[in-house]
Amino acid sequence: MRFGVLGPLEVRTSGGEPVHVPEARIRTLLAALLVHRGHAVSVDRLADVLWGDAPPAGAVRTLRSKVSLLRRVLEDAEPGGHDLIESRPSAYLLRADGDAVDAGRFETLLRRAYGITGDPRAKARLLGEAVGLWRGTAAFAEHADEEFARAEARRLEEQRLAAMEELAVARLDLGEHAAVAAELGGLVAAHPLRERLRHAHVRALYLAGRQDEALAGLAELRERLRDDLGLDPGPDLARLHEAILRQDPALTPAPAPDPDAPDAAGFADGTGARARGD
Protein backbone atom coordinates (compact mmCIF):
# COMPACT_ATOMS: atom_id res chain seq x y z
CA MET A 1 0.00 0.00 0.00
CA ARG A 2 1.22 3.48 -0.85
CA PHE A 3 0.26 6.75 0.80
CA GLY A 4 0.53 10.28 -0.54
CA VAL A 5 0.74 13.32 1.71
CA LEU A 6 2.60 15.76 -0.59
CA GLY A 7 -0.69 17.33 -1.60
CA PRO A 8 -4.20 16.03 -0.87
CA LEU A 9 -4.24 12.78 1.11
CA GLU A 10 -4.01 9.85 -1.29
CA VAL A 11 -4.00 6.08 -0.89
CA ARG A 12 -3.10 3.62 -3.64
CA THR A 13 -2.52 -0.10 -3.81
CA SER A 14 0.97 -1.37 -4.55
CA GLY A 15 -0.23 -1.71 -8.14
CA GLY A 16 -1.21 1.94 -8.31
CA GLU A 17 -4.99 1.64 -8.06
CA PRO A 18 -6.63 4.48 -6.09
CA VAL A 19 -8.26 3.57 -2.78
CA HIS A 20 -11.32 5.50 -1.67
CA VAL A 21 -11.24 6.38 2.03
CA PRO A 22 -14.79 7.33 3.04
CA GLU A 23 -15.86 9.85 5.65
CA ALA A 24 -13.92 12.96 6.63
CA ARG A 25 -13.04 11.69 10.12
CA ILE A 26 -11.58 8.46 8.74
CA ARG A 27 -9.36 10.53 6.43
CA THR A 28 -8.36 12.72 9.37
CA LEU A 29 -7.52 9.63 11.42
CA LEU A 30 -5.33 8.31 8.60
CA ALA A 31 -3.66 11.72 8.21
CA ALA A 32 -2.86 11.83 11.94
CA LEU A 33 -1.28 8.37 11.79
CA LEU A 34 0.73 9.41 8.71
CA VAL A 35 2.00 12.56 10.41
CA HIS A 36 3.53 10.25 13.02
CA ARG A 37 4.22 7.33 10.64
CA GLY A 38 6.24 4.63 12.31
CA HIS A 39 5.43 5.96 15.79
CA ALA A 40 2.58 5.10 18.10
CA VAL A 41 -0.09 7.79 18.56
CA SER A 42 -2.01 7.69 21.82
CA VAL A 43 -5.75 7.14 21.90
CA ASP A 44 -6.16 10.44 23.75
CA ARG A 45 -4.23 12.29 21.06
CA LEU A 46 -6.25 10.73 18.25
CA ALA A 47 -9.52 11.51 20.03
CA ASP A 48 -8.39 15.13 20.37
CA VAL A 49 -7.55 15.25 16.65
CA LEU A 50 -10.95 13.87 15.67
CA TRP A 51 -13.22 15.73 18.09
CA GLY A 52 -11.22 18.45 19.82
CA ASP A 53 -12.92 19.79 22.95
CA ALA A 54 -16.23 18.09 22.17
CA PRO A 55 -15.61 14.32 22.19
CA PRO A 56 -18.69 12.09 22.01
CA ALA A 57 -19.77 9.92 24.89
CA GLY A 58 -17.69 6.76 24.74
CA ALA A 59 -14.99 8.44 22.62
CA VAL A 60 -12.54 5.54 23.02
CA ARG A 61 -15.11 3.04 21.78
CA THR A 62 -16.04 5.32 18.88
CA LEU A 63 -12.38 5.76 17.98
CA ARG A 64 -11.95 1.99 17.98
CA SER A 65 -14.79 1.71 15.48
CA LYS A 66 -13.18 4.33 13.24
CA VAL A 67 -9.89 2.40 13.31
CA SER A 68 -11.77 -0.80 12.43
CA LEU A 69 -13.40 0.92 9.47
CA LEU A 70 -10.05 2.23 8.24
CA ARG A 71 -8.53 -1.24 8.57
CA ARG A 72 -11.42 -2.69 6.58
CA VAL A 73 -10.93 -0.12 3.80
CA LEU A 74 -7.22 -0.97 3.55
CA GLU A 75 -7.83 -4.73 3.68
CA ASP A 76 -10.54 -4.57 1.01
CA ALA A 77 -8.15 -2.64 -1.23
CA GLU A 78 -5.24 -5.04 -0.78
CA PRO A 79 -4.74 -8.20 1.27
CA GLY A 80 -2.68 -7.42 4.36
CA GLY A 81 -3.88 -3.83 4.52
CA HIS A 82 -5.60 -4.51 7.84
CA ASP A 83 -2.24 -5.28 9.47
CA LEU A 84 -0.74 -1.91 8.54
CA ILE A 85 -2.44 -0.43 11.59
CA GLU A 86 -1.08 -1.96 14.77
CA SER A 87 -2.74 -1.77 18.16
CA ARG A 88 -0.47 -0.74 21.00
CA PRO A 89 -1.37 -0.19 24.67
CA SER A 90 -3.71 2.81 24.51
CA ALA A 91 -2.29 3.76 21.11
CA TYR A 92 -2.22 2.95 17.39
CA LEU A 93 0.65 2.87 14.90
CA LEU A 94 0.65 2.93 11.10
CA ARG A 95 3.35 0.68 9.67
CA ALA A 96 4.62 2.40 6.54
CA ASP A 97 8.29 2.30 5.59
CA GLY A 98 9.97 5.23 3.85
CA ASP A 99 9.14 4.00 0.35
CA ALA A 100 5.45 3.51 1.13
CA VAL A 101 4.88 7.23 1.80
CA ASP A 102 5.73 9.85 -0.82
CA ALA A 103 7.20 12.12 1.88
CA GLY A 104 9.66 9.37 2.78
CA ARG A 105 10.69 8.92 -0.86
CA PHE A 106 11.02 12.70 -1.18
CA GLU A 107 13.42 12.91 1.76
CA THR A 108 15.44 9.92 0.53
CA LEU A 109 15.94 11.58 -2.86
CA LEU A 110 16.97 14.82 -1.16
CA ARG A 111 19.61 13.06 0.94
CA ARG A 112 21.03 11.41 -2.18
CA ALA A 113 21.03 14.68 -4.12
CA TYR A 114 22.65 16.71 -1.35
CA GLY A 115 25.42 14.11 -1.15
CA ILE A 116 26.47 14.78 -4.76
CA THR A 117 29.28 17.24 -5.49
CA GLY A 118 30.70 18.20 -8.86
CA ASP A 119 27.94 16.62 -10.94
CA PRO A 120 25.09 19.14 -11.45
CA ARG A 121 23.38 16.87 -13.96
CA ALA A 122 22.99 14.00 -11.50
CA LYS A 123 22.00 16.40 -8.72
CA ALA A 124 19.38 18.08 -10.92
CA ARG A 125 17.94 14.71 -11.91
CA LEU A 126 17.44 13.59 -8.30
CA LEU A 127 16.12 16.97 -7.15
CA GLY A 128 13.74 17.13 -10.10
CA GLU A 129 12.46 13.66 -9.23
CA ALA A 130 11.98 14.70 -5.59
CA VAL A 131 10.14 17.94 -6.38
CA GLY A 132 8.05 16.07 -8.96
CA LEU A 133 6.51 13.94 -6.20
CA TRP A 134 4.52 16.95 -4.99
CA ARG A 135 0.90 17.23 -6.16
CA GLY A 136 0.48 20.82 -5.00
CA THR A 137 2.25 23.26 -2.73
CA ALA A 138 0.90 22.07 0.64
CA ALA A 139 1.60 18.75 2.29
CA PHE A 140 -1.43 17.20 4.02
CA ALA A 141 -3.36 19.77 1.98
CA GLU A 142 -6.80 19.45 3.55
CA HIS A 143 -5.30 19.27 7.05
CA ALA A 144 -2.28 21.60 6.66
CA ASP A 145 -3.78 24.33 8.87
CA GLU A 146 -4.95 21.96 11.60
CA GLU A 147 -2.87 21.82 14.76
CA PHE A 148 -1.98 18.13 14.50
CA ALA A 149 -0.50 18.44 10.98
CA ARG A 150 0.68 22.06 10.85
CA ALA A 151 4.29 21.57 11.98
CA GLU A 152 4.90 18.57 9.72
CA ALA A 153 3.29 20.30 6.73
CA ARG A 154 5.49 23.35 7.23
CA ARG A 155 8.62 21.23 7.67
CA LEU A 156 7.98 19.44 4.39
CA GLU A 157 7.14 22.71 2.61
CA GLU A 158 10.44 24.21 3.77
CA GLN A 159 12.26 21.17 2.40
CA ARG A 160 10.41 21.57 -0.91
CA LEU A 161 11.42 25.22 -1.23
CA ALA A 162 15.04 24.46 -0.31
CA ALA A 163 15.07 21.65 -2.90
CA MET A 164 13.73 24.01 -5.57
CA GLU A 165 16.45 26.52 -4.73
CA GLU A 166 19.10 23.81 -4.96
CA LEU A 167 17.59 22.55 -8.22
CA ALA A 168 17.72 26.07 -9.69
CA VAL A 169 21.43 26.34 -8.85
CA ALA A 170 22.15 22.95 -10.45
CA ARG A 171 20.23 23.92 -13.58
CA LEU A 172 22.13 27.21 -13.81
CA ASP A 173 25.35 25.19 -13.71
CA LEU A 174 23.94 23.22 -16.65
CA GLY A 175 23.36 26.43 -18.63
CA GLU A 176 19.54 26.56 -18.38
CA HIS A 177 19.61 30.29 -17.64
CA ALA A 178 16.55 31.50 -19.56
CA ALA A 179 14.34 28.62 -18.42
CA VAL A 180 15.28 29.06 -14.76
CA ALA A 181 14.75 32.83 -14.96
CA ALA A 182 11.25 32.30 -16.35
CA GLU A 183 10.25 29.50 -13.98
CA LEU A 184 11.43 31.15 -10.76
CA GLY A 185 9.45 34.36 -11.27
CA GLY A 186 6.25 33.03 -9.75
CA LEU A 187 8.05 31.33 -6.88
CA VAL A 188 9.90 34.54 -6.01
CA ALA A 189 6.61 36.45 -6.05
CA ALA A 190 5.14 33.91 -3.62
CA HIS A 191 8.22 33.95 -1.34
CA PRO A 192 9.75 37.39 -1.87
CA LEU A 193 11.99 37.39 1.22
CA ARG A 194 13.80 34.07 0.63
CA GLU A 195 17.33 35.26 -0.05
CA ARG A 196 18.71 32.06 -1.62
CA LEU A 197 15.74 31.86 -3.97
CA ARG A 198 16.22 35.49 -4.95
CA HIS A 199 19.95 34.87 -5.44
CA ALA A 200 19.23 32.07 -7.92
CA HIS A 201 16.61 34.15 -9.75
CA VAL A 202 18.81 37.24 -10.02
CA ARG A 203 21.75 35.17 -11.25
CA ALA A 204 19.51 33.47 -13.81
CA LEU A 205 18.23 36.84 -15.06
CA TYR A 206 21.77 38.14 -15.40
CA LEU A 207 23.01 35.03 -17.22
CA ALA A 208 19.98 35.20 -19.54
CA GLY A 209 21.07 38.70 -20.59
CA ARG A 210 18.53 40.57 -18.45
CA GLN A 211 20.92 42.57 -16.29
CA ASP A 212 18.54 45.48 -15.63
CA GLU A 213 15.89 43.09 -14.31
CA ALA A 214 18.49 41.33 -12.18
CA LEU A 215 19.51 44.60 -10.54
CA ALA A 216 15.87 45.61 -10.12
CA GLY A 217 15.22 42.31 -8.32
CA LEU A 218 18.05 42.98 -5.89
CA ALA A 219 16.80 46.51 -5.28
CA GLU A 220 13.27 45.24 -4.59
CA LEU A 221 14.53 42.66 -2.12
CA ARG A 222 16.68 45.25 -0.33
CA GLU A 223 13.67 47.53 0.04
CA ARG A 224 11.36 44.78 1.25
CA LEU A 225 13.86 43.46 3.78
CA ARG A 226 14.32 46.91 5.25
CA ASP A 227 10.60 47.74 5.29
CA ASP A 228 9.36 44.36 6.55
CA LEU A 229 12.19 43.14 8.78
CA GLY A 230 14.53 46.07 9.30
CA LEU A 231 17.37 44.06 7.75
CA ASP A 232 19.85 44.38 4.92
CA PRO A 233 20.50 41.61 2.37
CA GLY A 234 23.05 39.03 3.43
CA PRO A 235 26.67 38.97 2.23
CA ASP A 236 26.00 36.51 -0.61
CA LEU A 237 23.54 38.91 -2.22
CA ALA A 238 25.87 41.86 -1.65
CA ARG A 239 28.65 39.98 -3.43
CA LEU A 240 26.30 39.04 -6.25
CA HIS A 241 25.31 42.69 -6.69
CA GLU A 242 28.95 43.75 -6.95
CA ALA A 243 29.74 40.92 -9.37
CA ILE A 244 26.87 41.91 -11.66
CA LEU A 245 27.95 45.54 -11.68
CA ARG A 246 31.45 44.62 -12.81
CA GLN A 247 30.14 41.76 -15.05
CA ASP A 248 32.39 39.27 -13.32
CA PRO A 249 33.14 36.29 -15.63
CA ALA A 250 33.01 34.05 -12.56
CA LEU A 251 29.21 34.39 -12.61
CA THR A 252 29.08 32.28 -15.76
CA PRO A 253 29.58 28.61 -14.89
CA ALA A 254 31.90 26.40 -16.89
CA PRO A 255 29.96 24.09 -19.22
CA ALA A 256 28.87 20.92 -17.45
CA PRO A 257 30.45 17.78 -18.92
CA ASP A 258 28.37 15.94 -21.50
CA PRO A 259 27.83 12.39 -20.18
CA ASP A 260 27.78 11.08 -23.78
CA ALA A 261 31.04 12.74 -24.80
CA PRO A 262 34.31 10.74 -24.90
CA ASP A 263 36.53 11.22 -21.88
CA ALA A 264 39.94 10.17 -20.69
CA ALA A 265 38.52 7.13 -18.94
CA GLY A 266 37.42 5.51 -22.20
CA PHE A 267 39.17 4.64 -25.45
CA ALA A 268 37.62 4.94 -28.89
CA ASP A 269 37.02 1.68 -30.69
CA GLY A 270 37.40 1.26 -34.41
CA THR A 271 34.04 2.91 -35.13
CA GLY A 272 34.82 6.01 -33.07
CA ALA A 273 32.56 4.95 -30.16
CA ARG A 274 33.98 5.01 -26.66
CA ALA A 275 34.92 1.62 -25.36
CA ARG A 276 33.21 0.70 -22.10
CA GLY A 277 34.74 -1.15 -19.22
CA ASP A 278 31.56 -3.08 -18.44
Rank of each mutant, 00 (worst) to 15 (best):
L33E: 02
A32N: 06
R25I: 10
G81N: 01
D48C: 05
G38I: 01
L34F: 08
K66P: 04
V67N: 09
L46N: 12
A77C: 06
S65I: 03
L50E: 11
V49E: 12
A54I: 06
L33F: 08
D76I: 00
P55Q: 06
T13C: 10
V49H: 05
P79F: 00
G58D: 15
L34S: 08
H20V: 12
A57Q: 15
D76K: 10
E78H: 07
R71H: 09
V43I: 02
H20F: 06
V73Q: 14
P55F: 10
G58L: 08
L63Q: 05
L46W: 04
R12K: 00
K66S: 15
H36M: 06
W51E: 13
A40P: 07
S68F: 03
D83S: 14
H39L: 07
G16E: 02
H20D: 09
V43C: 02
V41D: 06
E23G: 09
L70W: 08
R71W: 06
A59N: 13
V49C: 07
V60A: 15
V41Y: 03
G80C: 04
D76P: 06
G38H: 03
G81I: 00
L46S: 14
L34Q: 07
E78Q: 14
L46T: 11
G38P: 07
L46I: 08
R64M: 11
H20N: 09
L30I: 11
R64Q: 15
L69A: 15
S42F: 02
R27F: 10
L34N: 04
R61D: 15
L69K: 12
A40R: 13
L74P: 05
L33P: 07
L29G: 13
P79V: 00
A31V: 03
H36N: 12
